[in-house]
Nucleic acid binder design. Structure first.
Lengths: 330, 330
DNA sequence: GTGAAAGCGCTAACAA
DNA sequence: TTGTTAGCGCTTTCAC
C-alpha cells in the first residue's frame, strides 16, 4: 500500500485521517490513487488498539424482539451512525445478570461505552463501572445518584394515564402491571395506587403483576377477569402487555372501550394499530436516544448523578373512550 | 499483571486460553490469583488484532424496529452468544446501498462475517465479497448461485397461503404486496397470481404494492378498498402490513373474516394477538438463524451456492374464517 | 515448563 | 513535508 504510492505508512495515515500533519497535494494524489487501486480500507481493529477507542458502543436490551426495545435500538443506531459509531447489541433475554458477566467483561473491552435500556442489575453495572466503561441507563428511574440516566418521570407519566381514565369518570381502574422486580413497574404501580386511592385490599384485588410480553399481558388480564372484581377501566404498564390484554378482553366478550376503557404505556407504533387503537403515555424514544448517546460520549456520564428527565406525552386514541369521529387513520 | 504473578506474559496467555502450551499447577495458581487480585480482563481488541478474528459478526437488517427483524435479531443474538460471539447491528433503514459503503467497509474490518436479513443490494454484497468477509443472506430467495442463503421456499409458502384461502371457497382474493423492488415480494406476488389465475387486468385491479410497514399496509389496503373491485379475501405479504390492513378494514366497517378473510406472511408474535388473530405462513425464524450462523462460521459460505431451504408452516387462526371455538388463547 | 521477542496494522512523536 | 520508529495488548514461535 504505502509501497505502491512510494511513501511511508505515516503519510498514508495523514492522508486517510486528514492530519495531524499536512501532506503536499502531489503526494496526497499518489496516495489516494494507490488507495483506489488497491481498494485499501484501514483496519478498524488495529486502529482501535492504537487509539484505545473503538468507535463502537454497546447496547444492552432486555429483549430485542420486543417492539419497544426494537424501536429504541433503531433510534440509537440512527444517532450512532450519524457520528460514525457502530453498535454492539447485547440481549440480556431476561437472564440473571451473573451469567452475563463473562460476556460483559469481554464486551467492555471492545466498546467505548454502554447504553442500557430498561432494567439492569446492579452487578451488571458494576462490571462496567470497574472496567471504567462509561455507561448511561435509559428509562430507568433511579434515585441512585451515581447512575447517569435519561428517562421520563415515570411517576408523573403513569399518573397522567390513570388520571385521564378518572377524568372519563372511571373509578374502578384495575392495574395490569409489570414484574415486581422492575423499578419502572413499581413507579407506575405507585402512581396508579395514589390516583385511585385504593387501600391494600382493593389494590390487591384490582391489580396483577405480569411479564412485559404479550403473553404476560394476556394471562395477567385473564387473571384479573377471573377474580370477579368489578372494574370499568384498565391501566396497562406497557403496550406489549396491552396487546395481550386486548386479546383476553375480546375473548371474554368485553368491548373496549364500551365495557372497559384501556390506557397503556410506552407509545410504540403497534399501539396505534391495535383494535381499538390504544390511548397511551408515549415516551419520546428518539429524543431519549439522542440525549443518552450524547451523554455517553461527552463523558459527562462520568460526572455522577446526571439525570435527564424528558417529557412524556398523553396520546389520545379510542381505547379510553374518546370518539374516533375526527380521526383520519393512524 | 504478569509482573505480579512473577511470570512472563506468555504464561498468562497459556493460562487464560488453556493452551497451547502446558503450565504447571503451581504457576497456574499464581497467575489465577493475580488475575483475581487485579480483576484482569484480556483486551478483546488486541486479541482480535493478533488473531485476525474478532469473534463478532455483523447483522444487516432493513429496520430493527420492525418486529419480524427484531425477532430475527433476537434469534441470532441467542445463537451467537452460545458460541461466544458478539453481534454488531447495522440498520440499513431503507437507505440506498451506496450511502452505507463507508460504514460497511469499516465494519467489514471488524467482523468475522456478515448475516444479511431480507433484501440486500448487490453493491452491498460486493463490498463484503471484495473485502473477503464471509456472509450469508437470510430470507432472500435468489437463484444467484454465488450467494449462500437460508430461506423458505417463498413461492411454495405464499402459494400455500393463497391456496388455503381458495380452499375456503374464496375466489376474489386481493393481494396486498410488498415493494416491487424486493425479491420476496415478487415471489409472493407470482404465487398469488398463479393461484388465483388472474389475467393482467384483473391482477392489476386486485393488487397493490406497499411498503413493509404498518402504514404501508394501512394505505395499501385503503387504496385497494377505494378501487371498487370486489374481493372477499386478502393475502398480505407480511404481518406488519397486515396490522395496517386490519386497521383499514375496521375503519371501513368491514369485518374479518366474515366480510373479508385475511392471510398474511411471516408469523411474528404480534400476528397471534391482532384482532382477529391472523392466519399466517410462518417462517421458522430460530431455525433459520441457527443454520445461517453455522453456515457463516463453518466458512461453508465460501463454497458458493449453498442454498438451504427450510420448511414454512401454515398457522391457522381466525382471520381466514376458521372457527375459534376450540381455541384456548394465543 | 517457561521466557524472550516478533509482529498483527495502525498512529504520532521525533528526526530529518 | 516526509520518513523512521515505538508501542497499543495480545499470541505464539523459538530458544532454553
Amino acid at each position: 500500500m504505502a509501497d505502491l504510492a512510494g511513501v511511508s505508512t505515516a503519510v498514508v495515515s495523514y492522508v486517510v485521517n486528514a492530519g495531524p500533519r499536512p501532506v503536499s497535494n502531489t503526494t496526497r494524489e499518489r496516495v489516494l490513487a494507490a488507495i483506489e487501486a488497491l481498494d485499501y480500507h484501514p483496519n478498524a481493529v488495529a486502529r482501535a488498539l492504537r487509539l484505545q477507542r473503538t468507535k463502537t458502543v454497546g447496547l444492552l436490551v432486555p429483549d430485542i424482539g420486543v417492539p419497544f426495545y426494537g424501536e429504541f435500538a433503531r433510534a440509537i443506531l440512527d444517532t450512532a451512525s450519524e457520528t460514525g459509531y457502530s453498535v454492539l447489541i447485547l440481549d440480556a433475554h431476561h437472564e440473571p445478570a451473573l451469567e452475563l458477566q463473562p460476556v460483559q467483561a469481554q464486551v467492555a473491552s471492545q466498546v467505548d461505552g454502554v447504553l442500557a435500556i430498561g432494567e439492569v442489575s446492579e452487578t451488571d453495572l458494576t462490571v462496567f463501572q470497574t472496567a471504567g466503561t462509561p455507561f448511561v441507563t435509559l428509562g430507568r428511574p433511579d434515585d441512585d445518584p451515581t447512575m447517569p440516566t435519561v428517562a421520563i418521570d415515570e411517576y408523573r407519566a403513569a399518573r397522567a394515564g390513570v388520571d385521564h381514565l378518572m377524568d372519563h369518570g372511571h373509578r374502578g381502574i384495575a392495574l395490569l402491571g409489570g414484574p415486581e422486580a422492575e423499578t419502572v413497574a413499581t413507579r407506575r404501580r405507585q402512581a396508579w395506587l395514589d390516583a385511585t386511592g385504593f387501600g391494600p385490599r382493593q389494590a390487591a384485588l384490582h391489580s396483577v403483576a405480569a411479564a412485559f410480553s404479550r403473553r404476560g399481558g394476556y394471562e395477567g388480564c385473564r387473571a384479573l377477569l377471573s377474580r370477579g372484581a368489578r372494574f370499568d377501566a384498565l391501566f396497562v404498564a406497557s403496550d406489549i402487555q396491552a396487546m395481550g390484554a386486548l386479546r383476553a378482553l375480546a375473548e371474554a366478550g368485553l368491548r373496549t372501550p364500551q365495557d372497559l376503557a384501556v390506557v397503556s404505556f410506552d407509545g410504540t407504533e403497534e399501539s396505534a394499530y391495535s383494535h381499538p387503537p390504544l390511548t397511551v403515555i408515549r415516551q419520546p424514544i428518539a429524543l431519549m436516544a439522542t440525549l443518552a448517546f450524547d451523554l455517553l460520549l461527552r463523558k459527562e456520564s462520568r460526572e455522577a448523578g446526571i439525570h435527564r428527565i424528558v417529557p412524556h406525552e398523553l396520546v389520545l386514541r379510542e381505547s379510553c373512550g374518546h370518539s374516533s369521529a375526527d380521526r383520519s387513520g393512524p
